[in-house]
Computed example of a mutant assay.
Amino acid sequence: MAIGEAPRYLSAGDLLRLCEFLYRRTGMLFGETKRYYIDRRVADRVAATGAMSFGSYFNLLLSDPGEAELLINSFTVNETYFYREEHQLHCLSRSLLPDRIVGKRPGDRIRIWSIPCSTGEEPYSIAIWLLENWNLVDAYNVEIVGSDIDSAVLRDAAFGEFGKRSVSRLSADLRQRYFHQLDDARWRIIPDLRESVSFRAANLIDRQVAETQGEFDIIFCRNVLIYFDDESRRRTVDNLYGALLPGGYLCLGHTESMSRISTRFEIARFEDAVVYRRARES
């Protein structure tokens, strides 16, 4: 170990075993370059469980789904805020939804999926945006589903309480109408809006995700593919394709592209955003 280098909690072999475990369960790639990040989280979980060594803790991971869930929760990235990538919300109300209601009748269902949804800012943003910007929102049965692999953030999302940074891009008027201000730094979504979004656990790399969640008109899956390798990206995109209705749309993050991942989607270019479409049935 070099002078001044922090001691390593995991041996090279331990690190490899753990990273392989995380990759199989989540599709996320970790390795030596993120050792400090990994060591700290594993050490916390080992202490919390009272395991005597990493070996005994790893055996617990393999046998206890609850502990595996807690460890995975500690590794997920939950950076988000309301009205993130707002240009896609403009595209949603101006282009995507008008296209999706062609052939539908008033009262028909429109399903929108936000995955991963983290602590709920993105699916709640969709709900607020539609109430404010789509004059047909009450004419259709709009179902918004938020999903994430992290069970802890799903509980936070359903509770609907947010800090100052999360709501910083919302106008004072929107905060006043859709939130109860708890103090100078905390806001909670009003009950009617909380009830407009349902939250369900889902793993993007699980090939049965489409079967368990149903099919959607529009999917927002933003800023997660950047954490995957090529194989995990392909599996994820295939799963998302299966979760879309024919002609449905997929919105990725602004740094993400379908090129070199899949040729199954059509590129759809609109005034506000470039998105991806599952081909309509012939």
Results as ranks from 00 to 15, higher is better:
4 G>D: 09
4 G>C: 08
6 A>M: 12
7 P>E: 09
7 P>K: 14
10 L>C: 12
14 D>T: 12
16 L>F: 14
17 R>N: 06
18 L>T: 00
21 F>K: 03
21 F>G: 03
22 L>C: 11
24 R>T: 03
26 T>C: 00
26 T>M: 00
27 G>M: 00
29 L>N: 02
33 T>P: 02
34 K>P: 00
39 D>C: 03
41 R>D: 03
42 V>C: 02
42 V>T: 05
46 V>H: 01
47 A>C: 04
48 A>M: 08
51 A>K: 01
54 F>V: 02
54 F>Y: 03
55 G>M: 02
56 S>D: 06
59 N>R: 02
60 L>T: 15
61 L>G: 01
62 L>T: 06
66 G>D: 10
66 G>I: 13
67 E>C: 01
68 A>Q: 15
70 L>G: 04
71 L>Q: 00
72 I>E: 08
73 N>F: 01
75 F>L: 04
75 F>G: 00
76 T>R: 00
79 E>G: 00
84 R>L: 03
85 E>K: 04
87 H>L: 00
90 H>K: 06
92 L>G: 07
95 S>H: 09
96 L>T: 11
97 L>A: 08
98 P>D: 15
101 I>N: 03
101 I>C: 05
101 I>W: 01
102 V>F: 03
105 R>E: 08
105 R>M: 11
106 P>R: 15
108 D>A: 12
108 D>N: 10
109 R>K: 15
112 I>Q: 07
116 P>W: 02
119 T>S: 12
122 E>S: 05
127 A>G: 06
128 I>M: 15
129 W>G: 05
132 E>F: 04
135 N>M: 10
135 N>G: 10
136 L>H: 13
137 V>T: 14
138 D>M: 13
141 N>L: 11
143 E>W: 13
144 I>Y: 01
146 G>M: 11
147 S>K: 14
147 S>R: 13
147 S>I: 03
148 D>F: 13
154 L>F: 11
157 A>Y: 09
159 F>T: 11
159 F>M: 06
160 G>L: 12
162 F>P: 12
163 G>H: 14
171 S>W: 14
172 A>Y: 10
174 L>S: 08
175 R>F: 02
176 Q>M: 07
178 Y>E: 06
178 Y>C: 02
184 D>Q: 11
186 R>K: 14
187 W>A: 09
187 W>G: 08
191 P>R: 14
192 D>S: 15
192 D>Y: 10
193 L>K: 07
193 L>Q: 04
194 R>K: 14
194 R>L: 08
195 E>R: 10
197 V>G: 09
199 F>R: 10
200 R>H: 12
202 A>G: 13
204 L>M: 13
204 L>K: 04
204 L>T: 11
205 I>H: 06
206 D>F: 02
207 R>G: 06
208 Q>Y: 06
212 T>Y: 09
213 Q>V: 04
217 D>R: 10
221 C>T: 14
221 C>G: 05
222 R>A: 13
226 I>P: 01
229 D>S: 06
230 D>C: 03
234 R>Q: 08
241 Y>F: 15
245 L>R: 12
249 Y>G: 10
250 L>V: 15
254 H>F: 07
255 T>M: 03
256 E>R: 07
258 M>D: 07
258 M>K: 05
260 R>H: 12
261 I>N: 12
262 S>D: 13
269 R>M: 11
273 A>G: 12
274 V>R: 11
275 V>H: 11
276 Y>I: 12
278 R>T: 14
282 S>D: 13
